[in-house]
């Protein structure tokens, strides 16, 4: 995914993420399996949710902006559990 000038990976590399070893996002794959709308895939600004060919969703938590978009747009009760990462971890902005 690119906006024509830089890759999405390069885009995400502009922000710093102090990754914690425990995920702060947990997705219940069983709930996602029969979801057809997949709001999280489109809306997550860090593109952390990726659909798989077998109808599931894989997700990353490492480069999360901690904005909360995913669980708020999600239509399925209980599909996404989300909390803030442990203190001192996660995104660190500099020029925002």
């Amino acid at each position: 995914m690119s906006d024509g000038t830089i890759s999405f990976q390069e885009r995400m590399a502009t922000a710093e993420f102090r990754v914690h070893h425990d995920a702060h996002i947990v997705v219940d794959g069983k709930v996602c399996a029969d979801c057809s709308t997949r709001e999280c895939v489109v809306a997550c600004p860090a593109s952390l949710f990726v659909p798989t060919s077998d109808g599931g969703i894989v997700f990353n938590y490492e480069q999360c902006f901690e904005c909360g978009t995913c669980y708020i747009v999600c239509n399925r009760e209980g599909a996404i559990s989300w909390h803030y990462p442990e203190g001192g971890h996660g995104v660190v902005f500099r020029r925002t």
């Binding site: 906006d3 024509g4 885009r11 995400m12 502009t14 902006f65 902005f93 925002t96």
Partner: peptide, 28 residues
């Protein structure tokens, strides 16, 4: 979202203002 930002930056009224600028930080 990032495609929509790219769309805004490409608008004829905005593109000349941001031309040549390099991305320092992306955030949401």
């Amino acid at each position: 979202p990032e495609q929509l930002v790219a769309g805004l930056k490409a608008h004829p009224a905005i593109a000349p203002l941001v031309q040549g600028a390099e991305l320092k930080e992306y955030s949401a």
